[in-house]
């Protein structure tokens, strides 16, 4: 019997901006099947036995790294982590050196987190291995964007014409960018909300609405994605204080109540409790914030699986 033939016709996952809506839907559909695997007594399948994955985290991120590692273990890959300490990054290893080392180790897939926007893209062009962007600078965090989409779809089957507002530091957020591209491709209406100092130029050109006031955003939103806020970037404070931020933009039960309709609240974690998100919201009975974490593993399994398939197809295509 000949199976249906669909897949990601690409070597790498670098961002949602370059994916088609169909590719995004394929990943989300596949993730649904992997989500079921996570509820099995034995949460491991032999699908990618023999695939070697290197997790290159040039920037600390315990959660994303764990989620990728778990996804890989569930698929029976051989995974190795490169402990790239911040000090060695400061000394400066060029991406070409990294690429040559990885190639020499005959790795099939690289998961890369880097403080520089575009670093995974550069690496991807230098190596034959698949590259999965696990967050690059202020550019994209595609698997986070996908797991957010997945979580939103669990509540609203179809995101078309749903109003999603991303709240926080849009300028420096890779999560915001991946959300914007993914949501627009799935037909959602996307808005952003935050202090003007945290909104980058050109948002309307991207097709994004700007809400200066959080109350206006909540009045129209079906879903909000609340970003983790940082007072300073490179020593420069971007707003006067976290207390002021909380009072102007913090998501509280009262603000949600005033919106007058139900709003699904997402947060990529880790939460600054009672700054961008009130604990009472984060811990509310219907909160999906922990589902996001579980969904993240399923989405990363789907991405790993679908990309690895393209390698297998190109490399060993005998019937």
């Amino acid at each position: 019997m000949i199976a249906e033939s669909t897949g990601l016709a690409r070597k790498d996952l670098l961002g949602l901006e370059e994916l088609t809506a169909e590719e995004i839907r394929l990943i989300l559909r596949t993730a649904r099947e992997f989500r079921e695997v996570l509820d099995r007594p034995i949460k491991k399948v032999p699908a990618l036995r023999g695939l070697t994955v290197a997790n290159l985290f040039f920037e600390n991120s315990t959660r994303t790294k764990m989620s990728f590692e778990l996804a890989q273990k569930r698929l029976s890959t051989d995974s190795i982590g490169f402990a790239v300490s911040t000090s060695s990054v400061k000394k400066g290893e060029s991406l070409r050196d990294t690429a040559q080392n990885i190639e020499a180790m005959r790795v099939d897939m690289i998961v890369m987190r880097h403080s520089e926007s575009g670093a995974p893209r550069r690496l991807a062009e230098m190596v034959d291995a698949h590259v999965v962007n696990a967050g690059d600078g202020c550019h994209e965090h595609p698997t986070q964007g996908l797991l957010d989409l997945y979580t939103m779809q669990e509540r609203f089957d179809d995101l078309r014409d749903r109003r999603v507002v991303i709240i926080g530091d849009i300028a420096h957020s890779r999560v915001a960018r991946s959300n914007i591209h993914g949501l627009l491709k799935l037909g959602a209406k996307v808005g952003v909300c935050g202090p003007p100092t945290l909104l980058p130029m050109g948002l309307p050109e991207l097709g994004v609405d700007v809400y200066p006031h959080v109350e206006d955003a909540l009045a129209e939103a079906d879903i909000i994605n609340v970003l983790r806020i940082q007072l300073e970037r490179m020593g420069v404070p971007l707003f006067p204080s976290t207390r002021e931020y909380a009072s102007l933009f913090g998501i509280t039960p009262e603000r949600l109540e005033n919106a007058g309709h139900e709003i699904l609240v997402l947060h990529p974690g880790p939460i600054n409790r009672n700054v961008e998100l009130d604990s009472r919201v984060a811990d509310a009975p219907g909160s999906v914030i922990l589902s996001q974490v579980t969904n993240g593993v399923a989405v990363r399994m789907a991405v790993t699986y679908l990309l690895a398939k393209t390698r297998l197809e190109a490399g060993h295509g005998a019937l």
Binding site: T6, R32, E33, V45, R49, K309, H316
Partner: peptide
Amino acid sequence: DITLYRDDLQTIAYHPVVGPT
């Protein structure tokens, strides 16, 4: 769905769609 348990994943030339279990 046996897709993820196939022993020929490394050799087949198409993308088996992962189905529900």
